[in-house]
Design a protein around this nucleic acid. Structure first.
Lengths: 190, 190
DNA sequence: GCTTTTTTTTGACAAATGTCAATGGAGCGA
DNA sequence: TCGCTCCATTGACATTTGTCAAAAAAAAGC
């Protein structure tokens, strides 16, 4: 499964074969069955995780037991808890598999070493961070500006692929509404 | 006013005097009166902007004329529209001054040149992006998980300084609620 | 193929939040 | 100081969204 990671990396930047070998040397492939945890709240997250196949979600569970989904991650996305990663504090998030999933894990210590050694990798990571920030701004704008229906419409436009493979109640959670509200919105859509 | 920018930079990383001079050479200080625009929707944003003093807001105006505030920026924060900056597309945001404000502007072309030439600057920028992303995640979590009252409580905890200098109706807009709702929440707070 | 679990939908009702209109106060500028 | 604009608050009411319970539909497991 490292091949999928390599394919992604080469599509995003020009890595030398030597650099690629360095990356492979520190990569660990992990397979997750549906519902299996990649991270549980309370644990410290110490990896960089690339999704080679499948789908994951990052979420919290509140005092009433309700789940709130921060992010989805499908193939060619990265996931993890950067807050826990950089602070060393226990994570408040859970990450688990929505489908059977394969991830490539690199311990952050080794990842940061390679980031220093491989400028191309560092630039790629910074570009991903930049894009993640821009995506977050779009989501914040939707969250504070849109009605439930508008949020769902925007979600469909922005992530059409997600709507096909993610259960509705998880989409509702991601959008900050109940599954009943989303169901009613869908009924009234043109 | 460049001194405030210099003070900030030196507090965040070890710049040489030569590097600082390079930065000063491309910096332009701009003073804004209360209500004055730094950016108007439709224009392309081409700067990096550091707030030396005062307070700005970034917001959109929807079809009904309602304003939705994406961000506030006070002294020692950065502001601007990175989406417009990196895409070259017209901005969908307005940025204007909530108080009389002084900003330090650096044209992005020159800023990127210095970022290449000064590794310390590049690292600082990447660190800021990283922090901005983490802050965005916190805000998204609040937006999809919390009630209006919880959002306001978290805001007070996270940004106590903002509550003192920003009009309530703007705080409400930032939190994605109406000014009436925020007024009622405040009445019922312990 | 059958059973079980998960997911989605529906209805009745409750709660939260928004809308509109009006008021009073605070602060600003001439 | 006067007048004006902006801001915060309040009440009445409308709308949106959530809650709870149940059933139907779909998917998963054996």
């Amino acid at each position: 499964m490292f091949e999928l990671f390599e394919k992604y990396l080469r599509s995003r930047a020009a890595f030398t074969d030597g650099e690629m070998q360095q990356l492979e040397a520190v990569s660990v492939v992990k397979k997750l069955r549906k519902r299996q945890y990649l991270l549980q709240a309370g644990d410290v997250w110490v990896y960089n995780a690339f999704v080679a196949s499948g789908c994951l979600r990052t979420y919290t569970v509140d005092a009433k037991g309700a789940e709130h989904i921060l992010n989805f991650a499908i193939e060619n996305w990265w996931t993890g808890d950067r807050q826990s990663l950089t602070s060393g504090q226990p994570s408040r998030f859970n990450i688990d598999a929505i489908e059977d999933t394969t991830v490539v894990l690199i311990k952050n210590e080794e990842f940061e070493r390679l980031r220093q050694a491989i400028p191309t990798l560092n630039e790629l990571v910074n570009d991903i961070l930049h894009r993640s920030f821009l995506a977050s701004q779009i989501r914040i704008h939707a969250a504070i500006s849109y009605s439930a229906e508008e949020k769902y419409r925007q979600f469909l436009t922005q992530f059409p692929a997600f709507a096909l493979r993610i259960p509705q109640h998880m989409v509702a959670s991601y959008l900050g509404m109940t599954t009943e509200t989303l169901s009613r919105i869908r009924r009234n859509l043109v």
